[in-house]
Amino acid sequence: MLENGVRADKFSFSLVLKACGRMGLVKEGLQVHGLLRKMETGSHLYLQNSLIGWYQNCGFIEFSRQVFDRIPKRDSVSYNSMIDGYVKRGLIDMARELFNCMPEQEKNLISWNSMISGYAQSENGLKSALELFRTMPERDLVSWNTIIDGCVKHGKLEDARSLFNTMPKGTRDVVACNAMIGGYVQNGNCTEALEIFEHMLKSDITPDSATMLIVLSAVAQSGRLENGVAMHCYLEENGFPLVGKLGVALIDMYAKCGNIENAKMVFENIEERNVDHWNAMIGGLAIHGLGELAFDLLMEMERHSVETDDITFIGLLTACGHAGLVKEGIMCFELMRRVHKVEPKMQHYGCMVDVLGRAGLIEEARRFIDGMPIEPNDVVWRTLLSACKKYEKLNIERQ
């Protein structure tokens, strides 16, 4: 444009600055800023706000503040951009200071929601978030969802549920419901999580993939197979694809609910399986003590050229422990390191101690711990202590 003598306007510069911000082009953005300083249109508020956004996207919050401070008459976009920049960098006190200085006529829902979000995400800011929420002149769906999610993340489920129940009629959406369901599942309240899901269906709120993942987790934790079968039917009736995380969650749910046959059926019906599907199936076989079948699945993975990962071998070693397959467990551990080039993590060492301990090989388990290249954690020691108690080996000492 410039080389051909076409005069750039404020929209041209704004778009170029957005491009520089998204691509992290600092040098080019500075050149655009320098060009704007030489032009009459450069002082236009629209372009000054664009510069604030560009500096923030490139990580220069202090330079964006310099641009902000030089603007003679700021608008709500200027203030909201700066507040949002401070909030995203965890500088909540600076955001609040600017929010307090902001003219009342410029404060809008974006301003209030940014502050509530910032406080809700900060470690000790929930009280301030609730105070702002209660005093804001008007609220939208973002306001409600932000404060509910904040309460859930801070473990204040009663406050979250109270807010959820007082949402204006017809305003609840899938985001609010997912926050409540997820909060209940994380705190082991699976019954309440499933009640929220039933409320969604009765209220004609359409669940999304995130909803179904959380609900399947709730069913797996509670072991309610009948609910799991109902969830499976819902997934099929509503066309949810099982090629990704939902398929993994469904396999895991059936296995944890004690129906390994249904887990196998789901696994075999997924045409495009990735390593997570294989791992879920191996893990399901492991908790049912079907170690040999788990090894068969490993062989099948190799035939299908599916690359294993560290989760694969955690499942296999767990299967060996539950099935009493000591030799196979030792072989699996060596296979992981030497053939598949997977570096053992603490979980793998813990699984090996469990394999040896469950078989009563207490001395071997102790020597295995002593030979670990990393410092064993409390889980490893508890695993050994549990085996000692089971086999009444009460005089074991570390070398």
Rank of each mutant, 00 (worst) to 15 (best):
S12K: 04
V16F: 10
C20G: 08
C20I: 07
G34V: 06
L35T: 12
L36W: 00
L47P: 00
S50R: 09
I52T: 05
Q56Y: 12
I61H: 09
E62D: 15
R65I: 10
R65T: 09
Q66S: 12
F68D: 00
I83D: 04
G85A: 06
K88H: 00
R96Y: 12
N108L: 09
I110S: 11
S111C: 06
W112L: 03
W112A: 01
N113R: 06
Y119S: 06
F133V: 00
T135E: 14
M136R: 02
M136N: 01
M136D: 06
D140Y: 08
S143M: 09
W144D: 05
I147Y: 04
G150M: 03
C151L: 05
L157K: 01
L157F: 02
D159K: 11
P168N: 10
G170E: 05
R172I: 03
D173M: 03
M180L: 08
M180Y: 03
M180E: 05
V185Q: 04
Q186V: 09
G188R: 04
N189D: 15
E195I: 11
F197H: 05
M200N: 06
K202C: 13
D204P: 09
D204C: 14
I205E: 06
I205K: 06
T206M: 15
S209F: 11
T211V: 11
T211A: 10
I214P: 01
V219K: 07
N227W: 14
H232A: 04
C233H: 13
C233N: 11
L235Y: 00
L242N: 00
G247P: 01
V248S: 01
D252K: 02
A255E: 00
A263K: 03
V266Y: 05
E271M: 14
N274V: 07
H277E: 02
W278N: 08
W278P: 08
M281L: 05
H288S: 07
M301D: 00
S305K: 13
S305R: 13
V306E: 03
E307C: 11
D309T: 07
D309S: 06
D310Y: 09
D310E: 12
F313W: 01
I314F: 02
A319H: 03
A323S: 06
V326Y: 05
M331C: 14
M331R: 15
L335R: 15
E343P: 08
M346L: 14
Q347G: 11
H348K: 08
Y349Q: 00
G350I: 00
D354Q: 08
G360N: 02
L361R: 10
I362N: 07
E364L: 07
A365E: 02
R366I: 12
R367D: 14
F368L: 04
D370W: 10
M372D: 03
P373F: 01
N377T: 09
R382V: 12
A387L: 04
C388E: 07
K390G: 04
E397H: 13
